Simulated scan of single mutants.
Amino acid sequence: MNSEWLTHIQQAVAHGEQSASITAENPTGRRGAGGRESSMLGPGRKGRPCITLPAGETTELARIDGAGSIRHIWMTVTTHTDAVGFVLRDLVLRMYWDGSEIPGVEVPLGDFFCNGNGERALVTSDLVVVAPTGGMNAYFTMPFRDGARITIENQHPVDVEGLFYQVDFLRTADPATVTDLRFHASWRRENPTTIGQDFTILDTVHGQGAFLGTYLNIVALERYWYGEGEVKFFIDGDDQFPTICGTGTEDYFGGAWAFQDQLSADTEPNVLTFSAPYCGYPTHSTRDSSKQAVYATAMAPLHGMYRWHVQDPILFAEDLRVTVQQIGQVGPDIVERSDDVSAVAYWYQNPPATDRTPIASRNLRRPR
């Protein structure tokens, strides 16, 4: 048994922490309150495994009083309806800590789980796992001292049926044992990006904390290789130039040489997707699977990749900004380019962010 894990469990028991879980079968998470609804099989026999999300409304999935930490979230939902739209981009996931009215997390549901552009992809990583068929798991630790709340807003044109979910958390008797750092996640998109201007993954945040990771989604709007752009971390007052500067987009996400198997000059290179504990490139697609296309199914190439800074934390004491260049390569030349780029930034900070820009409207989020 992992000794680190066992040490944590011993500390949790010593602090009087208690395990709890919120699902459609136990929406309050109270002791002894789960599985009471009736089905055709009788009382307590899978009576309420899922819920419907009414169009245009915000549904509260979880409300937790007191102190503790969320340790795991699992969800699955239908990705297609008869209405035009992309369910995974049309549902907005929000999380609130310690009674704040400003969400610490505000991200399209699919993108939060590294499934961008309304498309499913299998992900096998340390912090996010998306399993067949559309089982979305997040293992971020999300602490709170004075309550937590999770909501989903349905901006899809019609009701979305069949949202299954589970929020696993620990209740803590002593709020003093909870860290001051709060979990955050935000989503940004530019379509198209501006030539010569770096894409902002995380706009400047103030406080102290740690950057946890990036999910980057690129729809290539120009020909040839898109990923020469360097990822930059501007830490604690960095102005024009960053403290940490990578060497290329695929390099930052753990890959190399354009994620391709360069066989020979006469052979089409194979694009090699992969999914590993701390980095991955799970999405490469040139065919539409959204069921929105009526005639043609070919489309601009989709690329999705993630990186978790678990073993290599990015720490900041005053402020942090994260960007990536939009640079490609044509022959021997590197060139500025313009693509459809979106990203999720995941980080912890204290004090919690209070100057968040609201998420873009559904029309500006939808895949084009």
Rank of each mutant, 00 (worst) to 15 (best):
T283W: 14
N270I: 12
L263A: 06
Q262M: 13
T249P: 03
H284N: 14
T247V: 05
D288V: 02
V271F: 13
T286F: 10
Q262A: 11
G255L: 00
R287I: 08
A256C: 13
A276T: 08
Y281I: 10
T267P: 00
L272V: 15
G254I: 06
R287C: 02
G255F: 04
G280L: 00
S285C: 15
A265Q: 08
A258M: 05
L272D: 11
G248I: 11
L272F: 12
C279F: 12
V271I: 15
A265Y: 14
F259E: 13
T249M: 04
P282I: 06
G254S: 05
T283G: 12
E250M: 00
Q262D: 12
N270E: 08
Q260E: 05
Y278D: 12
P282Q: 08
T247F: 06
D251L: 04
N270D: 09
A258K: 01
Q260C: 04
H284P: 08
A258H: 00
D251P: 02
L272I: 13
C279I: 02
A258E: 04
R287S: 04
S275W: 06
A256G: 12
F253V: 01
V271P: 09
L272Q: 13
D266N: 01
S285Q: 14
S275N: 10
L263T: 00
D251C: 01
W257N: 11
D288S: 09
F253W: 03
G280C: 00
N270A: 12
Y278H: 07
T247P: 06
G280N: 03
Y252T: 14
A276G: 05
G280Q: 00
A265V: 15
